[in-house]
Structures are given as structure tokens and as C-alpha cells.
């Protein structure tokens, strides 16, 4: 495991050492180490799954698959960047695979084609809590929701989104704009 050894040599801080130690023990199959990693990442990763899948049951299914994939790919973690960021990518990819299997990433219908794209933020956004915002996002068509999540939350470029979803960057841009417009309208109605 040359990458793992490189990662372990870079560790010199206590908290990183403990994280590295947990990772090393998880790779060797230590259940308690795996549980510790699970406890530290689960709340954020479940939120990621909820954003992409739109409903709780499917999100929990993707969540569990995501952790199985994470533990199987722990050896691939090079130590570059944050561990949480690396884990988030795994869960996003797991969610995308699930959406592809369900054939949910079809081209969205031309909804609100003439929707005005606001550049500013609606007034109600500041008062909107996470739960409410999550509900509004889950009501978006799957393709719009996915493109918007990847762009606005995860920070992917349109080129990266296009490669992941099998669309063109222009289409990705269009999807994000439409999702934004729809969200703005929903927020303004509240």
C-alpha cells in the first residue's frame, strides 16, 4: 500500500494521526475504527444523500452503499485534501450511480422555459431553514436537482458535471439555471 504509507509518513499532528490511525485500522478490518469513522461522517453524508435522492428511504439506501464503498476504497485515500471532502465525492458518485440505475437522469422536460433567472437572492432565503430548503430542492426534477447540487453545493464545474451526467457543459449550465429559477420562485411564494 504505497499511497497509504506515503499518507502515514505525512501525518504529524495528533488529530491527523488519530484519523490516520483510524483509517489504517479500518483497512485492516477493525470494526471499532470503522464505527468511529462512520460516526464522524454519517450526519453530513446522510444530508448529501438526502439532497441528491429526494426521499428518505432511497437516501438511506444510497447512504449505506456509500459507506460500503468508502470502506472498500480506504486504501485509495492519499491524504491529499480533507478526508471529509474525499468521502463526500464517494457519496456523490454513489448517488449518481443510483440515479442512473433508476433511469432518473433523463433529460428534464422543458419546465418554466421562460422563467426569469434572478441574479439576486429572494428575500425569504435568509429565513429558510435547512429542512425547508432541502424539501424545496427535493421537489426539483432529478436532473435539475443533481446538476444544481453538484454545481452550487459541491462546487463542480460545468465541464465536470457534463462528464459525470453524460451531457454537454451547455446543457449543464442550462439545467443549473432552470433549477435556480425554480427554487427562487418556490422561495418567493413562501
Amino acid at each position: 500500500m504505497p499511497m497509504m504509507q506515503h499518507f502515514l509518513r505525512k501525518l504529524h499532528l495528533t488529530n491527523e494521526a488519530s484519523e490516520g490511525d483510524l483509517i489504517a485500522r479500518s483497512i485492516s478490518g477493525d470494526k471499532s475504527a470503522q464505527k468511529a469513522i462512520f460516526d464522524s461522517l454519517a450526519p453530513q453524508m446522510l444530508a448529501v444523500c438526502m439532497r441528491y435522492m429526494g426521499d428518505r428511504d432511497t437516501a438511506e439506501d444510497v447512504f449505506q452503499d456509500g459507506f460500503v464503498t468508502l470502506f472498500s476504497k480506504l486504501e485509495d485515500y492519499s491524504g491529499e485534501g480533507s478526508f471529509e471532502g474525499w468521502a463526500r465525492k464517494i457519496f456523490v458518485n454513489t448517488a449518481l450511480m443510483s440515479l442512473r440505475k433508476k433511469d432518473a437522469l433523463r433529460a428534464a422536460s422543458e419546465l418554466d422555459a421562460a422563467a426569469e433567472m434572478e441574479s439576486g437572492s429572494p428575500d425569504g432565503l435568509k429565513d429558510l431553514g435547512y429542512k425547508e430548503l432541502l424539501r424545496l430542492v427535493s421537489e426539483l426534477p432529478a436532473m435539475y436537482r443533481t446538476a444544481f447540487n453538484m454545481f452550487a453545493v459541491e462546487g463542480y464545474s460545468h465541464k465536470e458535471i457534463a462528464e459525470a451526467l453524460g451531457i454537454t457543459p451547455a446543457t449543464s449550465r442550462s439545467h443549473v439555471q432552470r433549477a435556480r429559477a425554480m427554487l427562487q420562485k418556490k422561495i418567493e411564494r413562501k
Binding site: A42, P43, Q44, L46, A47, M50, R51, E118, S119, G120, S121, P122, L125, K126, L128, Y130, L133, L134, V137, N149, F151, A152, V153, E154, G155, H158, R173, R180, L183, Q184
Partner: peptide, 20 residues
């Protein structure tokens, strides 16, 4: 290409936690 709306949405959602 992110505007202010995207940034605010992103901040709310990226910091979200769910009960597991």
C-alpha cells in the same frame, strides 16, 4: 459562475447535518 443565490444555498446545504 456562481452567484449570490448559489452561494447562500450552497452554504446552507453543505453545512447540513442529518440525524442518523
Amino acid at each position: 459562475e456562481k452567484n449570490e443565490f448559489d452561494s447562500q444555498i450552497g452554504k446552507i446545504l453543505s453545512d447540513a447535518r442529518e440525524e442518523v
